[in-house]
């Protein structure tokens, strides 16, 4: 009996002592460790942005920072994540105002790929390949011909995960860049269209009308009470394939990204999608969006008429 009591007490004592010691050590070291982590992060941010006279503003904890140079917004840094070979790969990427990569860093502490193979993605030799690339070039050479990245031999999965994480982050945060204005929106939409149809885009009227196979794409501008609507209309034969809307805030000259405008944009785009031209007058809208929808309808009709003229020519 007393032996059992003795055993239980020894176990209890060992457990309690370990727990106390451990929590003591933890309490002592935790602030030091988190301070170190903060400094390491700040160091990483400076490393991927090069220019040392800038300050960083955290937008999303541990994933997005805006970079300011004397109050001017000059770029951003993001941290995206993708599953690698044996864990998450999470690169930190510095991007300039035009969407070009400045530098990429992958902290070793957060990486658990195969030593000697996958771990090499953290090394300068691999990461230097990303300098000055734009999103479209961030592919492995073996995945796409426009790709500019050589994977590490025998570490394709790690290399691909890192590359894809960087590219997806670029595409996701592109819209927040200082210079992403409607010109970029037009360029990107046209590029996406050309890519998906695999044929070249022909410019018919500069900045107004393009042709891709049988599809005509026109760009129109509608001014409403508080915003400017830029509409890219794609017409094929007698049908609107789709419209893409860029709502611009005339004061900032950048895309309006509030919830309401996003909802408005989506509602309008959805309604006009795949509508036959002869049915366009039948479309019904709610009273809030009736005003702008009517203007868009008129604009599309005008475009359609013109597009017939262009085709006959």
């Amino acid at each position: 009996m007393s032996q059992k009591i003795r055993e239980v007490s020894v176990l209890f004592l060992v457990g309690i002592t370990s727990a106390l010691l451990l929590s003591f050590v933890y309490k002592q070291t935790a602030p030091v460790i988190s301070k170190y982590k903060e400094e390491a992060l700040k160091k990483s941010l400076s490393e991927v942005f090069i220019d040392s006279s800038v300050r960083f503003e955290e937008i999303k904890p541990d994933s997005l920072w805006k970079v300011f140079k004397e109050e001017k917004y000059v770029g951003l840094i993001f941290r995206s994540e993708k599953k690698g070979y044996s864990g998450k790969i999470s690169p930190i990427v510095g991007v300039d105002s035009t969407g070009k990569i400045i530098r990429v860093k992958i902290p070793k502490e957060d990486l658990s790929e195969t030593p000697g193979l996958g771990m090499k993605i953290a090394e300068v030799v691999f990461l230097d390949q990303f300098k000055n690339l734009i999103a479209d070039e961030v592919f492995l050479k073996k995945d796409k011909k426009e790709g500019e990245i050589d994977a590490i031999t025998s570490a394709t999965i790690s290399s691909r995960a890192a590359t894809d994480a960087i590219r997806e982050g670029l595409n996701k945060y592109k819209k927040l860049l200082p210079r992403y204005a409607f010109k970029d929106f037009v360029k990107t939409s046209l590029e996406n269209l050309a890519q998906s149809s695999d044929s070249a885009l022909e410019e018919i009227t500069p900045d107004k009308l393009w042709k891709n196979l049988n599809t005509y794409i026109s760009l129109s501008k509608i001014e409403d009470s508080s915003f400017v609507f830029h509409i890219l209309t794609q017409i094929e034969n007698k049908r609107i394939n789709k419209i893409t809307i860029f709502i611009e805030n005339p004061e900032t000259e950048k895309e309006e990204t509030s919830k309401e405008s996003k909802a408005l944009k989506q509602a309008l785009e959805k309604r006009f999608e795949k509508v036959l031209m002869k049915n366009i007058h039948k479309l019904k809208f709610t009273s809030e969006i009736e005003g702008i929808a009517e203007k868009i309808r008129k604009e599309i009709r005008t475009t359609y008429v013109k597009h017939i003229e262009w085709r006959e020519k």
Partner: peptide, 26 residues
């Protein structure tokens, strides 16, 4: 005690290594 030695070893070793890990990190 003899029949509790394994759990006790493990507690000691695990706590220990963890403390060393924290100390190194800090």
């Amino acid at each position: 005690p003899g029949n509790l030695r394994i759990p006790i070893f493990i507690i000691i070793i695990a706590s220990f290594v963890t403390m060393i890990d924290y100390a190194l990190k800090a």
